[in-house]
């Protein structure tokens, strides 16, 4: 059989390739934290408006994911972990990803403004700008603190959710921001310790590469210490209560203990047991954030202070 393939070289993407462009796994974090931010806010929101607001926040997050993949296609092509992404694997060309990102960004901001309010919409626009331009284009390739700054973009969604309900910012939403913001560095650096990713090949300055692994261990411990007071402080505000406080104290004690164990380990000991402690702390960090926001929901249901 003669098979002449006239389409060779022109990518013919499937729908799921475009979905992959929106980083659905990052989106799940955005959806959850934005929902909690919106739900625990003191203003009642109609469930359908709440649903739409969270959806548009998630779409905005997806748009910044697409813009990130468009700009980082050169890095993604070098690193093994990201080579299968739609652009480096050739299923979607860069300009399509850029177009999708820009259109979705505009769309999600407009629709959030119409569904909720324009303050929240402006906040979403700022978040997309922050992740796509300040983090991806500007700082990611320039400073080993990139994880810290990128964490800010991931920390805005609960504030946007809160703004959808209340139309503004308050201490509670700022503390939710701080919770995600200071949680991100220890979470990612714990991952970086055992996922020996080829960042050096892609010339991305990761702390493990630029300052070494012992320095990264010190940073992880330091951030767990900084994180704890903010997490507990949130329990003393109007969204907090005994259940949240109890959960937060326990989780922070565990997280600080994990950070301490990471700090005290030498690289040889870590290699000897296959990074068991680092992997455990990484898993703990996932539960840490999830359970904090679950505790906020439960506390809201039981009645906050």
């Amino acid at each position: 059989m003669i098979d002449i393939n006239a389409y060779e070289g022109t990518p013919e993407a499937e729908f799921r390739d475009f979905v992959a462009l929106l980083k659905p796994r990052v989106m799940s974090l955005v959806v959850f934290t934005a929902f909690v931010g919106l739900w625990v806010a003191p203003v009642d929101v109609h469930p359908f408006i709440a649903f739409c607001s969270v959806l548009f926040i998630a779409l905005g997050g997806g748009a910044s994911g697409a813009l990130n993949m468009w700009y980082d296609a050169d890095i993604d092509a070098v690193m093994r972990r990201t080579q299968g992404r739609p652009i480096p694997s050739g299923r979607i060309d860069g300009s399509s990803a850029l177009a999708l990102g820009l259109i979705l960004a505009g769309f999600s901001v407009m629709m959030l403004g119409l569904a909720a309010n324009w303050f929240a919409a402006g906040f979403l626009a700022f978040t997309i700008f922050f992740y796509a331009v300040v983090y991806t284009i500007w700082l990611k390739r320039w400073t080993p603190q990139n994880i810290v700054i990128g964490g800010a973009a991931g920390a805005f969604p609960p504030m946007i959710g809160w703004a959808c309900a209340t139309g503004g910012i308050s201490l509670e939403s700022l503390l939710m921001f701080a919770l995600v913001f200071f949680w991100t560095p220890p979470h990612f650096w714990a991952l970086a310790l055992f996922m020996k990713s080829d960042y050096h090949a892609a010339k991305v300055p990761m702390l493990t590469v630029t300052h070494g692994r012992p320095a990264t261990r010190r940073h992880i411990f330091a951030y767990t210490l900084v994180l704890a007071p903010f997490a507990i402080w949130l329990g003393l505000t109007s969204v907090g209560g005994p259940v949240y406080l109890a959960a937060s104290v326990v989780l922070n004690a565990l997280f600080i203990h994990g950070g301490w164990q990471i700090l005290r380990r030498s690289e040889d000991a870590a290699i000897a047991d296959g990074y068991a402690v680092e992997k455990r702390v990484f898993k703990l960090s996932l539960n840490y954030l999830f359970l904090h926001f679950v505790a906020l929901l439960v506390q809201n249901w039981l009645g906050a202070w």
């Binding site: 993407a13 499937e14 729908f15 979905v19 408006i49 739409c52 119409l114």
Partner: peptide, 24 residues
């Protein structure tokens, strides 16, 4: 097949968007 998956996907997205705006 790939192209159809894209077209069907976009169709579902558009219908869902109409439903969303109507609901809002």
């Amino acid at each position: 097949r790939r192209r159809r998956s894209r077209n069907v996907g976009l169709g579902i997205v558009l219908v869902a968007f109409v439903a969303l705006v109507f609901g809002l």
